[in-house]
Simulated assay, not measured.
Amino acid sequence: MTNTGTDAVALTFDDGPDPQYTMQLLDLLKEQGVKATFCVVGFRVRSHPEVVRRIVADGHTLCNHSWQHLDLSKRDDNYLAGDLQATNDAIHAAVPDAPIEYFRAPYGNFTPGMVRLATRMGMKPIYWSVDDQCWMSSTYGTGPAMIDHIATMVRRGTRPGGIILSHDMGKPQTIAAYRSLLPWLTSRFHLEALPTDQPHRSGQEPR
């Protein structure tokens, strides 16, 4: 899926949890009253379960983004199944009742087999309609030029129903860009986390 299917816009943040920048992003989202979707990497979930607990406690949606962000398009079905299940298991070790209803392939490199497997595991494959291009550090660096570039790409590309791809792992420029982007986005669009069939257990205190 490359859009939400409604007029709502979904913010998605990949590659965390990052104990520093994911937490800063969660603070910023809370200040603005915005819910988002976090596509998390399994081994980082295992290392930082407290961050995942905070994500769920704040009412955001979780998405499986593989165990260690390898290019899964080059792996066989047995490897894929083990990778996705290990990531779900790590998430549920941190937040046992959290729904995991989405999967995003590393680098967006989906294959038909990967889509079938994720679907069988109860996860909808998600792509994006807007790429903030924070990965282009060789062109824009990691300072003010990159912050401006992220903001420009999001402002230029966002339309009703869009899914925005951003990254929180090791990306202070994402936090800086969203300080101005969130007020801009909320004044023009309805932002929401990708929906889940199970209710969030928001309101519980992170442990």
Rank of each mutant, 00 (worst) to 15 (best):
T2V: 14
V9T: 11
V9K: 14
L11Y: 03
L11R: 09
P17A: 13
P19I: 00
L25S: 07
L28S: 05
L29G: 06
E31A: 15
G33S: 09
V34G: 06
K35G: 10
V45I: 02
R46P: 04
S47R: 15
V51L: 05
V52D: 09
V56I: 07
A57R: 11
T61Q: 12
T61M: 13
L62N: 02
Q68V: 03
Q68L: 14
L70E: 14
K74Y: 10
K74H: 10
R75Y: 04
D77H: 03
N78K: 15
L80R: 00
L84Q: 04
Q85W: 13
T87Y: 02
A93E: 06
A94D: 01
V95L: 00
V95P: 07
P96Y: 00
D97A: 13
A98M: 03
I100K: 02
Y102P: 01
Y102L: 03
A105N: 06
A105M: 12
A105Y: 10
P106W: 07
G108M: 11
N109D: 12
T111C: 08
G113I: 02
G113M: 11
M114Y: 06
A118Q: 00
G122D: 11
D131T: 13
D132P: 05
C134D: 15
C134T: 14
M136W: 00
S137A: 10
G141F: 09
G143M: 09
P144F: 01
P144N: 05
A145L: 14
I147G: 07
H149Y: 11
A151W: 02
V154K: 07
R155H: 04
R155E: 14
R156C: 01
T158P: 07
P160Y: 05
P160L: 01
P160M: 07
G161N: 08
L165H: 00
L165I: 00
S166E: 14
H167K: 00
D168V: 06
G170I: 03
K171M: 15
S180P: 04
W184T: 10
T186N: 12
S187E: 14
A193I: 09
L194V: 08
E205W: 10
E205F: 09
